[in-house]
Write a protein that binds this DNA or RNA. Structure first.
Length: 953
DNA sequence: TCTTTGTTAGTTTTT
DNA sequence: CTAACAAAGA
């Protein structure tokens, strides 16, 4: 694109007034906005300092700056300090320069100085918040009812950040400006939503959605005595929930809760300042307060022109910041509601979808005590960019269908209303050829790779290059996925076939093989640690039993000893890392990034090797991600998450992992802070003081409310839209096994593909079988601890004892283990007898109901079994997991299954997931049968029978 | 035949 | 939090 089209030109030349620009994918948004900037500053009257240009990522800001430099009269140097950047960056600058006194505006006696640092790592922030909360709890006994109920303090941090993103801040006595409104909720709006969900369906023959969903109200839950009963809430012999339920659910006395949140919020702000740090959220908070209160400063800082790109990604407070920073009514926001996919980052799609209404409301709020915002004078001018330079018309039309496709069976979309809001795009592609297809195969990774190989070089998937249609190469294909995990798995399989593929975007750096091996060798160097050697040995192909033997005897292989000696002579940590990576042939971007991370932290601090080891360990635990640059060569397939593809385009897009239960995952759900549940925080669980172990009480109102709110899938649809509109020409959906609802609904035939991947170097048709899959057994396979909490037993077991019996055995087992009782009721024999035998043989500390991970190696493949254990038994160096199964038989799907009791024992080395010993006992016909030691493969077979599902680690 | 109730498996995105 | 299934009720 060298010359702007008609609509673009209009935007470039409309420099005065308020403009809302609907710019769909591929319409040259960045091109236009940078030309508009150039046009402004080249006119003579306007200086770069007068124009604020905001985007959401530093990368985007840099790109904008570069493009402006290329097309305006200004050079790199002149624009270096021009206000082109992110909201966060801007707020940071403002606070450093003018914000010393910002905290005092909220009545907090502290200051922001050059020494105030920005905590940009979420895990660090969570740690700090935990520390704060611990002290807060000690100092504020008056909030005891709430303190007792908070299970996870960082949920409160989430609440604080969410409030901050909406511009709700605590003052000394109350809430800043009109923030409290957000906390009180809006009953009328709630009642309206409630009524919509409470209409009987199928012409009155079927109960309402809300009544159906309230069916499980109270199931497996214990509420306090004042909770309404299930029948009261749902009504009996009716198709709709009784009138008055909405009022019952909407809590109007929130004073105590609001006061608790207020004190936590304010306490945390003071804590952060005292500890000399700010977070992303607080940066905006203080900048906002400063701009609101310091009128001279606001007028001094205000810009003649404000332009915001990707406005659909902005939050409520960012919208308000843009208003405060606009000294005139020259505001231009560019965005596309269809591409708003960052709500978890507090993006408010309403900022674009309801722009005019919000503009008016926010301006009025900001102006309620004095004139701060001069907007708008002549109303809002709406502009649309409709010419699409990226995709074929077929792709565009298909993607728009995604926006009206139901995500689940019960999901309702109003296609006409949605289509009404879509500004239709017109493709100007020179060639119309476009293929849209779907494949599905159990071996999903192989199927995707085989499909990619078949596409490469195939004229049927021709793409446009230099004005001609040519067969595609690897570099023309991008695989998009919802999750990082899937991308990484695919990459690993691709590597086995030497298929050129590179993952781009954030990687959980310290969880990569590269980082783990480096960590292992550092541990070996430091102390010959087992958890180092185990990793190294396993990587070298030693079997599980062999690793154990080597560790016990200390008979490390000669070549490894030699390498250890070599490392000991290496020059610093960087030298060690280089040699380790070179030994294992790691020469890609991940290795480079690990090296960079290690060297930079080493340079910034005075770290010993031991400190560095702990740094890497923390990295593994937190799952911190880092950007890793493309590793493979130029002509390679790109793998990315959909979220990471913003602004990108690819000739051929493969949208992978379109599996049932995966896309969408659990649905969007209503945000935490809404009119129904404004604080998102209520007594979730109450631990009864008169019980030694967790008898769990739930808050009935929270449970009921959650069921009454419709699950929203709009953002899931937009995510799909974003993925599809990355494609220029061809589109392939891929699912493993069961396709999800989107793929079922969209007008594309789902074919299959032979998952035969050619080894790239062999060029032949060698086929490899990979993976380890176990069919999920049919039918119920036992009782989980959740069953313990159930009040009503269900009947229907074939042997007539029923689930209540199993529940009782479990309950007895738990109470016995915790020392609350020691005589088994006679009616529970013989099972209770087995339980007593088993528990008596254990000793040590017992903890009830815990998530376990059981890492194993089977036939050279690593396998992890996980699940909820009934009891976890802890001794130094040993963790034992106990899982009871009553040896009843139950009718399941027409066949009878035997069940055995399994007792797993897991030794040592949880951290590296490497060495494991497993012992099994099982009871059958009343006898406790020890099988000790049991080869790991047998254990896995046994667990398969038990219905455990192995997953790749 | 349609509706209601109960049960189970599987389960994120990142400035 | 949903789909899918099973089973009982109307």
């Amino acid at each position: 694109m060298t010359e702007p089209n008609g609509q673009q030109r209009r935007l470039i030349e409309s420099t005065e007034g308020v403009h809302l620009v609907d710019a769909g994918p591929g319409t040259g948004k960045t091109f236009t906005i940078t030309r508009r900037y150039a046009n402004l500053v080249d006119g003579g009257d306007v200086e770069p300092d007068d124009v604020l240009l905001v985007t959401f990522t530093n990368n985007a800001a840099t790109e904008m700056r570069d493009r402006i430099v290329a097309h305006s009269d200004y050079g790199v140097r002149e624009l270096r300090d021009a206000p082109i950047g992110t909201f966060h960056g801007l707020c940071h600058d403002v606070l450093l320069e003018h914000g010393v006194h910002a905290p005092t505006l909220l009545g907090i006696d502290d200051r922001i100085t050059r020494a105030t640092r920005l905590v940009d790592d979420e895990t660090v922030e969570r740690e700090l918040f935990r520390e704060f909360y611990g002290r807060f709890a000690d100092d504020h006994p008056e909030h005891e009812p709430f303190l007792r109920v908070v299970e996870e303090p960082t949920e409160l941090l989430g609440l604080v950040n969410q409030l901050a993103a909406k511009g709700v801040f605590p003052t000394e006595e109350g809430w800043y400006r009109n923030g409290e409104r957000h906390l009180d909720g809006d009953f009328e709006a709630f009642a309206e939503t409630f009524e919509a969900g409470n209409r009987p369906r199928n012409g009155g023959g079927k109960q309402s959605r809300i009544r159906e969903r309230l069916g499980s109200y109270g199931r497996g839950k214990c509420y306090r005595a004042d909770a309404p009963s299930r029948a009261e809430l749902r009504g009996e012999g009716t198709k709709r929930v009784p009138d008055g339920t909405a009022e019952l659910l909407f809590e109007d006395d929130r004073e105590a809760l609001k006061s608790f949140v207020h004190d936590v919020y304010r306490g945390y702000l003071a804590f952060a300042l005292r500890r000399n740090y700010l977070t992303f959220g607080f940066l905006q908070l203080f900048a906002f307060v400063l701009l609101c209160e310091d009128h001279d400063l606001r007028e001094e800082l205000a810009f003649e022109h404000v332009m915001v790109d990707e406005f659909q990604d902005s939050s409520e407070i960012q919208f308000k910041l843009a208003l405060l920073l606009a000294g005139t009514d020259n505001l231009c926001v560019v965005g596309d509601w269809k591409q708003s996919i960052y709500s978890f980052q507090y993006a408010a799609v309403e900022n674009v979808a309801e722009f005019e209404a919000r503009l008016e409301r926010f301006a009025a709020e900001l102006n309620d005590d004095r004139e701060r915002v001069g907007l708008p004078i002549d109303g809002v001018s709406r502009l649309e960019l409709v010419e699409n330079y990226r995709s074929t018309q077929a792709i565009i039309d298909f993607a728009e269908r995604a926006l009206v496709t139901p995500a689940t069976g019960g999901d309702e979309v109003d296609p006409a209303a949605v289509r009404d809001r879509i500004v239709p795009l017109e493709s100007n592609a020179a060639f119309g050829n476009s293929r849209i297809e779907a494949i599905s195969h159990e071996d999903e990774h192989e199927a995707v790779l085989a499909k990619v190989q078949s596409i490469v070089g195939d004229e049927a998937y021709a793409i446009e290059r230099d004005g001609e249609l040519v067969a595609p190469g690897y570099g023309d294909v991008a695989v998009l996925t919802r999750t990082r995990d899937y991308g990484r798995e695919l990459l690993e399989v691709a590597r086995e076939y030497d298929l050129p593929m590179a993952y781009e975007g954030g990687v959980e750096l310290f969880r990569t093989d590269q980082a783990k091996l480096l960590l292992a060798w550092l541990r070996i160097l430091e102390s010959d640690a087992d958890r180092g050697w185990a990793v190294v040995l396993e990587e070298a192909g030693y079997s599980f039993e062999e690793v154990r033997h080597v560790l016990e005897e200390g008979t490390y292989p000669g070549n490894m000893r030699a390498f250890r000696t070599e490392l000991a002579g290496a020059n610093g940590v960087g030298g060690v890392a280089r040699r380790v990576f070179s030994r294992y042939g790691y020469d890609g971007g991940v290795a480079a990034t690990v090296l960079d991370a290690v060297e930079s932290v080493r340079a910034a601090t005075t770290m010993t090797r031991g400190d560095l080891i702990r740094f890497l360990e923390r990295g593994v635990e937190s799952g911190a991600t880092r950007e890793v640059s493309a590793g493979a060569g130029a002509d390679s397939v790109t793998v990315r998450t959909i979220h990471a593809t913003k602004g990108l385009e690819h000739p051929i897009v493969v949208l992978a992992n379109m599996n049932a239960n995966r896309f969408p995952p659990g649905g969007g759900g209503a945000g935490t802070i809404t009119f129904e549940d404004p604080l998102g925080l209520r007594a979730r669980r109450v631990y009864a003081e008169d019980h030694g172990h967790p008898h769990v009480y739930h808050d009935w109102r929270t449970d009921a409310l959650r069921r009454c709110l419709p699950t929203e899938y709009d953002e899931e649809r937009r995510l799909l839209y974003v993925a599809l509109t990355r494609a220029e020409r061809h589109l392939v959906f891929a699912a493993g096994g069961e396709p999800n609802a989107f793929l079922e609904e969209l007008p594309v035939d789902i074919g299959t593909v032979e998952p035969t991947v050619r080894r790239a170097d062999a060029g032949g048709t060698e086929q490899a079988t990979l993976g380890f899959s176990v069919p999920t057994p049919e039918g119920p396979v036992g009782y989980t601890p959740h069953t313990l909490m159930r009040e009503e037993a269900f009947s229907g077991t074939a042997d007539g004892r029923g689930a209540a019996y199993g529940t009782d055995v479990h309950e007895f087992a738990e109470r016995y283990a915790l020392g609350e009782t020691d005589d088994p009721p006679a009616r529970l024999e013989p099972d209770a007898g087995h339980v007593v035998d088993l528990l008596d043989s254990l000793g040590g500390e017992l903890r009830p109901e815990e998530e376990i991970v059981l890492p194993l190696e089977v036939d050279g493949e690593r396998v992890v079994l996980s699940g909820l254990a009934d009891l976890v038994h802890v001794r130094p160096g040993t963790v034992e997991v106990v899982d009871f199964k009553t040896d009843t038989t139950r009718r399941a799907h027409g066949e009878y299954r035997k069940q055995v009791s399994v007792y797993h024992r897991v030794l040592d080395e949880w951290f590296t997931d490497r060495t494991v010993d497993a012992h099994v006992h099982y009871t059958y016909d009343g006898d406790l049968v020890p099988v000790d030691p049991l080869p790991v493969t047998d254990l896995v077979d046994l667990l398969r029978e038990e219905g455990a599902t192995p997953t790749a680690p």
